[in-house]
Design a protein around this nucleic acid. Structure first.
Lengths: 148, 148
DNA sequence: TTGTATGCAAACGGTTTGCAATGCG
DNA sequence: CGCATTGCAAACCGTTTGCATACAA
């Protein structure tokens, strides 16, 4: 895990929401701000356990729920069985690569306005598109294999 | 639960897929074909337990998984914690009434073609839109209160 | 110092699995 | 008759909860 965000910045974000700064919160936030992979709680646990050897699952969920409540993280449910966490809290869509399992954020404005799509009687307040497909082999967005 | 489909029709659907006809499958199918409510396994269990007093949860999941595998039912995950089942197996979108919790199917062709929306490099094979909002009070689609 | 956050362990809810008994074709 | 399906109970997995201790403000 590489450090991508200063402790000061994290203190500021937490402080602004009236949340205390704990090592657990700082490390988990730093990891989440530095990834776009939409990890599950289990994956976050694996990622931070070197930096937080004593971390318990209970505390992990406690921290994640606090950050979600404070609107620092958002959640997505794309498959049954696990909640995924995302540091991108602005409105956006998702693309799931069915080959690699990678999940990509799709900017909100790439999809045309669909507020009226459902038709008469449906008062749409929000919507979200989930795309399924494969990322082009030559796309720079495609993750490189670990051992080429 | 009202009978909306003949036993013969159910036998035909199951037979075509090479599935044996059991009372459990017949009753569960009949209930699912007659509802648009996207019930969870628990809700299906409650709905059919009068007709199938001995039904076990294990068998319920066994039946539901068999019907999903045979493409007689489809699944949706709209919230964490529970899979919802739908007798509508054709491509469609969903509208969730955030007041009532009701889930409505939105026909596929009410949403314009979004295959190219994510942009360069994303080869979209499929997509699905989830709308959140409220159904107009005067809409005929809105469910009537149990005790007006 | 005070109240909130942590660690641990037990509980929880939805779903799956193993196995003997039943029943459909 | 033979194999698929059922019922039951235990196991599983992600998540929540309760409580005593530790710690940020």
């Amino acid at each position: 895990m590489t450090t991508t965000m200063t402790t000061a910045k994290i203190r500021q974000i937490l402080g602004k929401r009236g949340l205390k700064v704990t090592p657990q919160r700082a490390v988990i936030m730093e990891f989440m701000m530095g990834t776009k992979s939409h990890p599950t709680a289990e994956e976050i646990y694996e990622a931070v356990k070197d930096a937080l050897p004593g971390l318990s699952k209970g505390t992990l969920y406690n921290v994640l729920n606090a950050l979600v409540d404070a609107n620092i993280l958002s959640t997505v449910v794309l498959e049954p069985g696990a909640i995924r966490y995302d540091a991108n809290v602005s409105n956006h869509h998702h693309f799931i690569d069915v080959d690699t399992g990678q999940i990509y954020d799709i900017p909100w404005d790439r999809v045309q306005n669909l507020f009226n799509a459902p038709g008469e009687g449906f008062c749409v307040a929000d919507y979200q598109v989930t795309f399924y497909g494969v990322m082009a082999q030559n796309s720079p967005k495609r993750p490189k294999p670990e051992h080429p």
